[in-house]
Amino acid sequence: MGVIPNIMVNALVLASMYILASLGFAFIFNMLGSVNLAHGAFYMLAAYITYYLCAKAGLNNWVAMLLAAIVLAAIGIVMERFVFRPFQTEFDRVVMVSVALMTMLQQLAVQVSGSQTISIPAYGNGVLDLGFMTLTNEKLITFLVGLILLIITLYIVYRTKLGMQMEAISQDRLGAALQGIQVNKVAMLVCGMGFALAAVAGAMMGAYQQVSSNMGDNINVRILMLVMLAGAGSMNGILITGFLMALLDSVCPIIWDSYTASAIACSAVVVLLLIRPKGFFGHEM
């Protein structure tokens, strides 16, 4: 009783967080052609910042999350200026720098928190009785935060001038510059926005699950897979593959232990990629 609805709820909550974490990565990948392998590490960093602001500075968890998002937005802007912009055409350099950053941040996380299990105070308590099932407020709130930010992002991408300029830059950078689009300024804004979204996801997941030095790796694998699975340049695709990935992550642990489940979910994605190497929703004429 209630297994299917529960799976769906869990999948929706996870999906909203996966997608939120992936948006920045996808923007940077599509627009600037940079593969930011440190994206997951920054998501983790945001979780740690939020945790310490709550635990050590005694801040309210929402305030802490907001501050973490601001810090990460600033880091995103710095990354654009000093990594993505100068190494624009050099794929290998961006990979090198981002792997170095990822390792550094992870080591730092291990240093400060050791191997203890920590988590951010829950953003919601209590349960909601829907009659046919019960739902924790935490799940509801996590999902709603994801949903609202996602709607705002989609609005920006599809309905504003900034969104159209982002699209133009990702399709033809020189062409975009020649229309008078301030390519660097747009890139800076988008990096700030993308990092802040990942920060919110990290801060929410640090409460919904836990804060750990390998949470960045876990999300990184998901981000890479769902963005590749969606295909280059696809926003709508990310929504679908994000849900698919979350569904796999919600179903597999019911059947297998968590390690096997993760391996099986990842294998399923690899198989899908073998079927459609360019993803499922990428640019088509």
Binding site: K161, M164, E167, A168, Q171, G175, G180, G233, H283
Partner: peptide
């Protein structure tokens, strides 16, 4: 250097960005 995946209309609007 057009925007190949955007419509003619959006290409024109981007000219006026």
């Amino acid at each position: 250097h057009l925007f190949p995946y955007l419509s003619v209309q959006k290409n024109l609007l981007l000219g006026a960005t």
